[in-house]
């Protein structure tokens, strides 16, 4: 049974180079799931079969599914977070206008349609960008921030060694990563994601301050999922996040990629809905 319309580029973004893709629910429930990829990822490819498996998962039938794209290879982390916050700001403040602009005439939604809940599913660097964006939105007093929950896969919020991933991601030929000695890769992210970097330290400190007296529960991850064979990020707990859950036989890149015969990442997501 068809539960969602075909994937389309979402026209709401000021950024011309990276795509936001969306699958709109045919019977919308005022809830959405937004995926944000990690270092060097792609709006859709990072998530492998998520876009195909989600529409047939019972608990996702009514959810709109967004796949947010940004330059996760060379863009400055703080800028990426500000752009993401701005995107969310527009999506929550002009929901019906933006949604109907992107829907065909036969599927227009009634005036007053809004999102009352959004699960942000973030991988790797995407987790840092989400945390920064949510933290800043909270400080700016944006009401929508409280409607968001976070599910984090292999988050890079405690630091990451990202140079090796660049080569693999830049070409699509996975074996090219074995020739990283030949690479001369430059990106602000290499320093910004180093364990103990100023950016990561202040992210943790500001989060802890905002969470004092158990305030702002949306700044605490709903779930943190880590890979068994992790070589890119540090698997340490961030602030008062729940203890991580690990998926056996996964790596940094495979931990967020469900398939028809490997549904664990999807099950974790469904548990959050």
């Amino acid at each position: 049974m068809q539960t969602h319309l075909v994937a389309r580029s979402f026209h709401a973004t000021l950024k011309p180079d990276k795509d936001v893709q969306v699958l709109f629910a045919i019977q919308p429930s005022s809830k959405a799931v937004l995926f944000i990829h990690g270092f060097s990822g792609d709006a859709i490819d990072t998530w492998s079969e998520f876009p195909l498996l989600l529409p047939i998962a019972n608990r996702c039938h009514g959810h709109d599914l967004y796949f947010y794209g940004y330059d996760g290879l060379r863009a400055d982390l703080t800028s990426s977070a500000a752009l993401f916050r701005d995107f969310l700001d527009r999506l929550f403040s002009r929901t019906i206008e933006l949604v109907n602009t992107n829907l065909p005439p036969a599927a227009q939604r009634p005036a007053g349609f809004t999102y009352d809940q959004m699960l942000v599913v973030a991988h790797s660097l995407g987790a840092v960008i989400t945390r920064r964006a949510l933290l800043d939105a909270t400080r700016l007093g944006r009401d929508w921030a409280a409607k968001i929950q976070m599910l984090l896969f292999a988050p890079a919020h405690k630091g990451a060694n990202v140079a090796d991933l660049a080569l693999e991601a830049a070409s699509g030929f996975k074996f090219v990563r074995l020739f990283s000695a030949l690479a001369r890769f430059e990106s602000p992210l290499i320093d910004q994601l180093k364990p103990g970097s100023d950016i990561l330290k202040s992210l943790l400190e500001e989060t802890q301050r905002a969470r004092a007296n158990d305030a702002n529960p949306h700044l605490k991850a709903r779930k943190v999922i880590i890979a068994e064979y992790e070589k890119i990020v540090r698997n340490e707990t961030f602030g008062d996040d729940p203890p991580p859950e690990s998926i056996p036989n996964t790596t940094h890149t495979s931990v967020c990629k469900p398939r028809a015969d490997f549904r664990r990442p999807l099950e974790f997501l469904e548990e959050c809905l």
């Binding site: 319309l5 045919i26 065909p104 005439p105 599927a107």
Partner: peptide, 15 residues
């Protein structure tokens, strides 16, 4: 909503 019609409109919009 007519699903077949919405799908048709999506394809016509894109292609």
């Amino acid at each position: 909503m007519s699903l077949a019609e919405a799908n048709f409109q999506d394809i016509v919009a894109a292609y």
